[in-house]
Design a protein around this nucleic acid. Structure first.
Length: 513
RNA sequence: GGCGGCGUAGCUCAGGGGUUAGAGCACUCGGCUCAUAAUCGAGUUGUCGGUGGUUCGAAUCCACCCGCCGCUACCA
């Protein structure tokens, strides 16, 4: 009836359209994109999903303020997100919008199933309501017992009929999930948090709203729409054909990893698996919560709207450096700091000096000593080649850290090879071999350098696709670097002898100043 | 308050019972000249938050203290 899973399926969170892209959301997209490109490079069929979350009261209100319909409003903003994704070379395979019929129809079907199974029921929600905020607050949020934290005015007790999901029923199953599949919620600190939250006892959650209409209608009750979170989470299955295309769904689901921010762990690690359990759908393999990008010690987010736009950094440093910097400088699972100075530092040290200069010095020597063609690697390997081979291995093996979302370690290890080639050049001193007329030694040395650069281009391509392609072309190689396939493509000796190299423009010219 | 985490070179961090505690950056000195004053080599700095304990031996385990942080349910 249906096929078998044969696709590496990864997702970012879907982005709330009311917000504009900032370096925090861009961080998540880039990381997911690097993982997607890395898996493709390793020969996997990959499905990379991202998109926008477009329902909810907030959006309805913003639209109203602008004198437009919610639908016009979201259509207007979505390009802001797709533009940033294009700018950052995000290679998504699908972009879902929660307002698309392919989503809304399946959300209704999914929820109807939970309702039919008795996991959704109508009850009265009572809570402290602030009229100015038009929102309910929990007891812990109130100041002095009954003051709204935003307006410092007394809240009133209100009640409304809501549909509830029987979350509490799934607590034992969730605990078993965390215990039997520790990889489900990563990193471990987050798993501990989630576990202790669930262990403390779960209440059923309200999943519908009747005070506004900008949402997916509850199919069995015209007065309600689904609360955005429960609509949004379902994008992960609606986008890959749940309820619509069983074969496509079977090939992709369950997701291999949902990459999300640490602030939205609960919906992803508690509500989401419980909903899937209730519907009898397989659970995702992993939810990975990344840390925040801090700017001067503060969270970069919607609150500091004055924050730096990704485009500003791309203008100054280029897209390759943008992607490299955040993954090399920060530990993905932890909070990390962005600063203009550290980004300049990374650009100059790692990109211009280490990698860019290496490419340039090798290409220059091939140009002036070998007439611009890749020489024959005549002669037997010596100690210098052996030392380089060790660094080569570290880079190839180290890049696999990307599978653990440890981008920092992967790049650290790749740079061992970059440094290794620089050391190799010093050790062999090809300029001396050239003067001595040691043709065989010179040929072997420069061939080895070009061949190592080819490998570096392949390995670095998921992180810096443009720079990798530029380097690939300078080396006179055929085809596209993105079409190479690991692990074979990282083996030594694959560079064709006689290819014509071209120095061209510097890969990473020094920054002005 | 409860649960959890962190505090290691000037900076960012790794390590985590066993000889003289590590990396990168920064800094100093030296080499080289193919290269984007780049690259290569050598070197300096640390009471591993504090106190006490377990141990033949602790940065690494335990207790307490100090400082910082996360979670402790329905604004996305």
């Amino acid at each position: 009836m249906s096929g078998e899973k044969d696709t590496f399926f990864l997702t970012t969170a879907i982005y709330y359209v009311n917000d504009l892209p900032h370096i925090g959301s861009a961080y998540e997209m880039v990381a997911a994109d690097v993982l997607a490109r890395w898996r493709r490079l390793n020969g996997d069929r990959v499905h990379f999903l991202t998109g926008t979350d477009e329902h909810g009261e907030k959006i309805a209100r913003s639209a109203e303020q602008r004198g437009r319909t919610p639908s016009e409003h979201v259509d207007d903003i979505v390009p802001r997100w797709t533009d940033v994704m294009a700018l950052l070379r995000i290679s998504y395979d699908d972009f879902i919008r929660t307002t698309q019929p392919r989503h809304t129809a399946r959300v209704q079907e999914f929820m109807q199933r939970l309702y039919d199974r008795g996991d959704i029921y109508l009850d009265t929600y009572r809570g402290a309501y602030c009229v100015s905020c038009e929102a309910y607050y929990g007891p812990g949020d109130l100041l002095d017992g009954d003051l709204c934290p935003v307006h410092r005015r007394p809240v009133e007790q209100r009640e409304q009929d809501n549909y509830f999901f029987r979350l509490s029923k799934y607590a034992p199953d969730l605990l078993r999930l965390y215990d039997e599949h520790p990889e489900f919620m990563q990193p471990e600190v987050r798993r501990n948090e989630v576990r202790s939250f669930v262990e403390a006892g779960l209440q059923d959650v309200s999943i519908s709203r009747s005070s506004f209409t900008w949402g997916v209608p509850v199919p069995w009750d015209d007065d309600h729409v689904f609360y955005v979170w429960f609509d949004a989470l379902l994008n992960y299955v609606t986008a890959v054909g749940w309820g619509a295309d069983d074969e496509a769904f079977a090939r992709r689901w369950p997701a291999d990893v949902h990459i999300v921010g640490k602030d939205i762990i609960r919906p992803h690690a508690v509500y989401w698996p419980a909903m899937l359990m209730a519907a009898g759908v397989a659970l995702p393999q992993q939810v990975y919560a990344h840390g925040f990008v801090l700017v001067s010690g503060e969270k970069m987010g919607k609150t500091n709207a004055t924050g730096i736009a990704p485009a500003q950094l791309v203008d100054h440093f280029g897209v390759d450096c943008y992607r490299y910097y955040f993954l090399r400088e920060l530990s993905f699972g932890q909070d990390g700091s962005f600063s203009w100075e550290s980004m300049e530092q990374r650009y100059t040290t790692d990109l211009a000096n280490d990698l860019g200069n290496l490419a340039n010095r090798v290409l220059t020597m091939v140009t002036s000593y070998c007439g611009g063609t890749v020489p024959d690697p005549a002669g037997p390997p010596g100690e210098a080649e052996d030392a380089l081979a060790a660094d080569w291995r570290i880079a190839v093996e180290g890049m696999a850290a990307i599978d653990r979302l440890d981008f920092k370690k992967a790049l650290e290890d790749l740079w061992v090879l970059v440094g290794g080639v620089n050391r190799y050049v010093e050790a062999r001193a090809p300029w001396r071999l050239h003067k001595q007329g040691a043709g065989n030694d010179l040929g072997r040395c420069l061939y080895t350098c070009v061949d190592a650069l080819r490998t570096i281009a392949v390995l670095v391509s998921p992180v810096m696709p443009d720079a990798a392609a530029a380097l690939w072309s300078k080396l006179g190689l055929d085809g596209a670097v993105a079409d190479q396939c690991l692990p074979a493509a990282a083996a030594a000796g694959l560079t064709p002898v006689g290819a014509t190299v071209e120095r061209g423009a510097l890969l990473f010219p020094k920054l002005d100043e």
